[in-house]
């Protein structure tokens, strides 16, 4: 029997970012200078409040080889755990000097990516359950047909991580550790190591958000 039709539109199909994604999203990495203002992997200014951290790692394919043409973006709350977006109305201070978004390319030789940012505060989750501090990560590259979403949690937040509603959604406890960045201190800098394994042993957990 015929019924009324919904008129929702369909989302436009994703296509791979390809090997030359840098031209559009990070032209300096492609080897030329065109825009006056460039987006980068540095999220902080001197005015930004919070503990300075570096996140670094590699994205590794199913053969164990690092991807050297990958592009990553992060999105995170400020030090008080508030996102710089009008939808976030938590009663917490904003930091005008912190957008909370950055973009990085892996190195063409080593495959290493880095972000310079601050450690975010905890954000309220669904049903009043606080989420452990985390950073949202999105990954595209040649051979990735639709962007991969995952989260970076912090190894020094074991107590909060144990209660985190999203980590606890992951049925296989052994897989939760793929989302925990390891804290180390190097020459006075705080560095969190976060390798992403796209396929194979210890495959990183990716989310359908």
């Amino acid at each position: 029997m015929m019924v009324n039709q919904f008129n929702y539109l369909k989302e436009t199909a994703s296509q791979t970012a390809g090997p030359y994604v840098h031209i559009g999203l990070a032209p300096h990495a492609a080897g030329f200078d065109i825009f006056e203002n460039n987006f980068s992997n540095v999220l902080t200014t001197p005015a930004t409040r919070g503990e300075r951290i570096r996140i670094e790692g590699r994205v590794i394919d199913g053969s164990g080889t690092p991807l050297r043409d990958v592009l990553l973006e992060i999105w995170q709350a400020n030090v008080d755990g508030r996102y710089n977006h009008p939808a976030d109305t938590q009663d917490k201070p904003l930091d005008d000097s912190f957008r909370g978004w950055g973009r990085a390319c892996s190195d063409f030789e080593s495959g290493l990516y880095t972000f310079e940012t601050i450690k975010p505060g905890a954000v309220e989750g669904r049903h009043g359950r606080t989420m452990a501090p985390h950073i949202n990560l999105w990954i595209v590259a040649r051979g990735i047909n639709i962007g991969l979403n995952t989260r970076i949690y912090f190894s020094d937040e074991a107590e909060a991580n144990a209660k985190d509603p999203v980590l606890n959604l992951i049925e296989w406890e052994v897989r939760r550790k793929t989302l925990i960045a390891q804290r180390e201190e190097r020459d006075g800098d705080v560095v969190y190591r976060f390798d992403v394994r796209i396929q194979g042993d210890n495959e990183t957990v990716f989310f359908d958000v």
């Binding site: 977006h85 990735i144 957990v205 990716f206």
Partner: peptide
């Protein structure tokens, strides 16, 4: 998508974990 050969080693084998949206997903850079 094996006819696009590069996707073979760059595709997760595990199912994506479905997330109900939180502030982390409904907000984004301005």
């Amino acid at each position: 998508a094996p006819d696009y050969k590069t996707s073979i080693l760059r595709s997760p084998k595990n199912a994506l974990i479905s997330l109900q949206n939180s502030l982390s997903e409904i907000t984004g850079p301005v």
